[in-house]
Design a protein around this nucleic acid. Structure first.
Lengths: 418, 418
DNA sequence: TGGATAAATTCATGCCGAGAACAAATCCGC
DNA sequence: GCGGATTTGTTCTCGGCATGAATTTATCCA
């Protein structure tokens, strides 16, 4: 097990190969130097992930470190320009007021890019979680040439990166979300059915752009990154765990466990669209995507092939009986698939995003019913069902956050202001 | 060179009184001491998990620690009686011969117990992985009173525990495997359908036995523990990851990721028997267990209800056409369920245990076909399919190993020979 | 205004891993 | 058979770093 120099990966590996977490991971503190790194990471993580700016004392309490130790760690982070003090806030109690600590905004940014069926775009997020800049172009990219589209993405993202650097923002890296199967590191895109892409060396193509060449993107599945953004918005009371469903033209998904995306060997986990829910369908075993994908719903609703989602949504909101029934049917299949997954991974919540999020009022009931009926542990612990709250283009945000997570995981790489 | 100037740690290293005061342990006594604990654990883990006895130098290489550091760690483990040196083995190369290190056999044991539909038993395994003692009783326990069965288990396991202690074996703890839904720690058994149990406070009942009362068992699902044993036999080239299927009367399963059992929130993961594979079945959505459980196969084979598995196996081995067809059909459903799970968790291998292991030659083909056809990433990375190799009653072994894992995880608790 | 309370800092202490030097034990070529 | 090469294991010094107590700072409250 040598060093593993690929730090573009999903974080440092422990002896188990699992992604390292912030606080409760004893497996990483192997050497003395790693001890320091680990504690720096824990302190920075407290500041970055907190919903309210923590004081040094709160960091000490959260990490279990001595207060004096935290003082030293925070000094380092402040000197590096990663963290800044706010003015002390008078508390409604006796004692010296705490000094709130926040990530320095606009200092370090992660850049998330996305190519999807209907749009492509780029979004930069700083350590404080704020959107620094974003560009999105709407277009129907089904069947478009992969090279052309990637060149177009370069033209969009290159100036954004250049602009960030010109403004003195350090770019921590980039990530690219794609609606298909991509290897977890930087391997080629295997297949993106709804784009019509197959075996595309995305990174090489983007490297043709001189600016992007300096920031080779981590590739990831669109649903996985969207789930990361969702996990970010739901942090707070501990790291959330849920099953995320991202309906687009296809049906994607991701598994979030304790705030971490579960990637699996290659990063191909969460393909809930390929869950087989009807094994005795006349044309052969049918997957969820075939029964509840956008095209299937439109067809069942009596809408012409190639109907845009907006039209379907309009029909449903107008309470067109066929459309409502079609959505309800799809929701039932979705519920069955989710119940299946829940039985296998024992997760406590389901989050519906993408088109299913937009159709939420019309799918929630059927999904709940299916879960209650088919999840074996439902009588003791019912699954929570909710709607995605990460906002528009969550995969772009998720990609940026994935990059920023590297900064938090290894703060020592960012201590020298370059 | 063990021994050395013994005068042993007559006093616990007189840490200047600090040791005594550290006992309170505020939530998490952190860092510095955890570093030592972690490295001790890593060293012991190397010795325990290795397939060939490692030398100090190999431990240093595997953990990344300095050789001198490893010397110190190993000294502690040897003094504690957890590890022992073997005679140096002349190597076919230059250099001082390495001193192989092995766990001391028969010194510390984990005890795994199991209650299943057809038998109950207990097995003790020591740190070296050897079976110290075991007792199994065959009986049909379907519908038997839970209290009676647990008393019987007490009568079986109590003397085993007493005997171990009489022989000077330190019992690290006990685990109990059950064919049902149990909370991951020691919560009550929620439901074990094939035993006909529901909401049984297993731990309390076992505590009625004075010997067992001192070793309250960790409860776990039978398939989960069987998978742990399977992972143990498959260690070697790194920690294995696979999807384990345990066919008994029902169909259970477990997810093994990097050598660890994936438990989920409550320990209810892996219930592959409740995967919905035929959502449009006439009587309502059908689970894998309903279509490929033992009773379903027997019925499809034209055998009377309540047929014993041995009779089914005999019919299949005799190439009874109905039986072969029934098994093949079940295998197809199994393959669909496994493909579904693989699409969601991106794992690279499938291991068939329990009855599916015994039927392996008759199910392998259909399972492979289904996986190839329905796993989205199969064209790039086909799933390996293999048969369980952990031997008889794997859940008992897995339970014992689960207990021993605690010893490896926190060696400091076992340093004082008590 | 002084005491209580809490946050943050300072500092002496000691644990622990790193790394180098050294000792031990073997193989190999001459 | 002898010396050098090689690898394992031990010893020892050094320095990093967390710790915990004492101290300082800053506010609230009676």
């Amino acid at each position: 097990m040598a060093a593993a120099p690929d730090d573009a990966d999903a974080g440092p590996r422990t002896r188990n190969g699992r992604a390292a977490e912030r606080v409760p991971d004893p497996a990483r503190a192997r050497r003395q130097e790693h001890l320091r790194e680990h504690n720096l990471s824990a302190a920075l993580g407290c500041v970055v992930d907190a919903t309210a700016p923590p004081s040094r004392a709160q960091i000490a309490a959260a990490t279990g470190l001595a207060r004096g130790t935290v003082t030293g760690l925070v000094d380092v982070l402040i000197d590096a320009g990663l963290v800044r003090e706010l003015d002390p806030v008078a508390a409604p109690r006796a004692g010296r007021p705490a000094v709130p600590l926040v990530p320095v905004p606009g200092r370090i940014a992660g850049v998330g890019m996305e190519v999807n069926v209907d749009y492509l775009g780029v979004r930069a997020v700083d350590l404080a979680g704020g959107v620094v800049v974003e560009r999105v172009e709407q277009d129907d990219l089904r069947g478009a040439d992969a090279g052309d589209v990637l060149d177009r993405l370069s033209a969009l993202a290159g100036p954004v990166l250049a602009g960030l650097q010109a403004d003195g923002v350090r770019v921590a890296g980039t990530a690219l979300a794609l609606p298909g199967l991509v290897d977890r590191v930087t391997g080629p895109l295997r297949v993106a059915p709804n784009l019509g892409w197959r075996d595309v060396d995305v990174v090489a193509r983007l490297a043709a752009d001189p600016v992007l060449a300096a920031f080779p993107p981590r590739l990831a599945n669109e649903a996985n990154l969207a789930a990361r953004a969702e996990a970010h918005t739901r942090r707070g009371a501990g790291a959330p765990s849920f099953l995320y469903v991202s309906g687009e033209v296809g049906v994607g998904g991701a598994l979030v466990l304790d705030g971490e995306i579960f990637l699996g060997r290659h990063g191909w986990s969460g393909e809930i669209g390929h869950v087989v829910v009807d094994g005795s369908a006349p044309e052969g075993p049918a997957t969820l995507e075939r029964l509840a994908g956008q095209d299937a719903i439109a067809a069942a609703a009596g809408l012409p092939a190639g109907t845009r989602f907006a039209d379907l949504l309009a029909a449903v909101d107008a309470e067109d009986p066929a459309a409502v029934a079609a959505v309800h049917d799809a929701a039932r299949w979705l519920g069955l698939a989710l119940a299946t997954v829940a039985n296998v991974v024992d997760v406590g919540a389901v989050v519906l995003g993408g088109t299913f999020g937009q159709l939420y009022p019309h799918v929630e009931g059927a999904v709940r019913d299916a879960l209650d009926a088919h999840v074996i542990f439902a009588p003791w612990s019912a699954l929570e069902v909710s709607r995605a709250r990460a906002g528009a283009y969550p995969a772009m945000t998720g990609g940026a956050l994935a990059v920023l997570r590297q900064v938090v995981a290894e703060p020592s790489l960012w201590l020298t202001p370059s």
